[in-house]
Amino acid sequence: MTVVVLGLTVTSSWGNGHATTYRALLKGMAARGHRIRFLEHDKPWYAAHRDLPRPDYCDVTLYDGLDELAERHAALVRDADLVIVGSYVPDGVEVARWVQATAEGVTAFYDIDTPVTLAKLERGEHEYVSPEVIPGFDLYLSFTGGPTLERLERAYGARRARVLYCSVDPEGYYPELGPVRWDLGYLGTYSPDRQPTLDRLLIQPARAWERGGFIVAGPQYPADIDWPANVERVEHLPPAEHRRFYNAQRFTLNVTRTDMIAAGWSPSVRLFEAAACGVPIISDPWDGLGTVFEPEREILITSDPETVQRWLRDTTAGHARAIGRAARKRVMASHTGWRRAAELEGYVAEVRGMAVLAVSGG
């Protein structure tokens, strides 16, 4: 297929989880023989932090606004087999209308922020998608599975709401030998709704276990946070350094956004990255997590700081490695970019099959 993606960013991983999601998926699609063009609105905050300006698995074109998009890329969008518009694309509603009016192939909205999107829609906020444009897409690809898919179809008229979780590039994430520097680490941009859980599951255990080593990597944390002395801070960790970061931890922590906990069935890319590295994960609980990893065998789940302390102090190295190996096996079977690309192909084939039936009168 010829695929055009209008996404928030693929060139910069700074302060967002979109870039790594697109990179794994598009690399998987390219490996399966698809030709991809990524159209990215040129924004100064990403221009200053571009860690992958020219991916080798897709062509990237930067544009300055809607007028340039329509003037320069109408034929590209018109002739593509599949056109994907992502969440948080600047002027997303107008971009969606233009794509739906221009594209002659299959169109899809890829919501990398589904619970956040639904919360915005309920408040009447149409920053990047609106109830009016949702039914105009052939596919609504959702970061969230479970009951949310039915809700998208029933409440917002999505034609086909299908889950398309994030994924991992196995060439970038794998176990490697090296010194273990921290007992527990966390990688994520600051978010006010995640901070109480980070306080509970990392900062409190760090205060209680002064001999332990901890680290938090990610931008935008307020200067007034009282970090314990045994918690290291890294402001930004580019994707090229993620593998080394995970492999230097005995355990890694996953913390989930409030909206995603409420929706359930919303695994983050950090889960798959850490698991691909064979690092045992400690996660806060949410509905659907057990469908992604098997609790206790592939992942440890708790909301209790004392339980985290016990795991850090008492889990044997052999038991921790067994959890990490089991999680990695699950990721390699179900959550790579190649696997996600195959799932997307199936959804596109579904749309095309329905179109053939409609034309034939079946």
Rank of each mutant, 00 (worst) to 15 (best):
165 Y>D: 06
81 D>L: 03
27 K>G: 11
207 R>K: 11
308 V>S: 01
61 T>K: 15
12 S>L: 09
221 Y>Q: 07
341 A>D: 09
128 Y>T: 04
69 L>F: 05
272 F>R: 10
284 D>G: 13
94 E>D: 09
318 G>V: 04
80 A>D: 03
360 S>H: 05
303 S>C: 03
44 P>V: 13
262 A>V: 02
239 P>F: 09
300 L>F: 09
178 G>P: 05
84 I>Q: 09
361 G>L: 04
200 R>L: 10
26 L>N: 07
191 S>L: 11
362 G>D: 05
168 V>A: 08
152 L>I: 02
336 T>E: 14
70 A>E: 15
48 A>M: 06
155 A>Y: 10
259 D>N: 10
48 A>F: 01
360 S>V: 08
356 V>N: 03
249 Q>F: 14
62 L>V: 02
243 R>C: 10
224 D>C: 05
180 V>D: 09
300 L>M: 06
255 V>C: 04
362 G>I: 01
110 Y>H: 13
99 V>G: 05
33 G>I: 00
103 A>C: 10
3 V>I: 15
261 I>W: 00
59 D>A: 14
324 G>D: 11
256 T>I: 08
172 G>Q: 15
5 V>Y: 15
20 T>M: 15
253 L>D: 01
95 V>A: 07
361 G>K: 03
196 P>M: 02
299 I>W: 08
94 E>Y: 01
211 R>D: 11
275 A>S: 14
158 A>M: 03
120 K>I: 01
8 L>S: 03
201 L>W: 15
340 R>F: 14
104 E>V: 09
337 G>N: 08
40 E>F: 02
267 P>I: 11
265 W>L: 04
136 G>E: 13
350 E>P: 01
191 S>F: 13
181 R>K: 10
107 T>P: 02
191 S>N: 11
248 A>V: 04
299 I>D: 07
78 R>M: 04
184 L>R: 08
179 P>M: 10
11 T>L: 09
160 R>W: 07
185 G>I: 06
67 D>T: 13
197 T>H: 03
179 P>E: 15
69 L>Y: 05
186 Y>L: 07
314 D>I: 04
144 T>A: 14
16 N>Y: 10
63 Y>S: 12
222 P>E: 11
105 G>N: 11
119 A>C: 05
310 R>S: 07
68 E>Q: 15
167 S>R: 03
299 I>Y: 07
343 E>R: 12
95 V>L: 05
268 S>E: 08
149 L>I: 06
17 G>H: 00
23 R>T: 05
127 E>W: 13
13 S>P: 01
198 L>E: 09
293 F>Q: 05
75 A>R: 15
345 E>R: 09
141 L>I: 04
16 N>L: 08
293 F>I: 06
208 A>D: 13
225 I>S: 14
285 P>L: 00
112 I>F: 15
177 L>I: 03
337 G>W: 14
210 E>F: 00
316 T>G: 13
359 V>A: 14
336 T>M: 13
198 L>R: 08
237 L>D: 10
176 E>P: 03
176 E>T: 07
34 H>P: 05
288 G>F: 02
212 G>S: 07
132 E>D: 14
51 D>E: 07
75 A>C: 01
263 A>W: 00
303 S>M: 05
254 N>R: 02
213 G>C: 09
261 I>N: 06
199 D>G: 06
324 G>S: 10
151 R>G: 02
128 Y>P: 15
339 R>C: 06
230 N>V: 02
315 T>P: 01
96 A>G: 12
76 L>M: 14
241 E>Q: 13
222 P>N: 01
325 R>P: 00
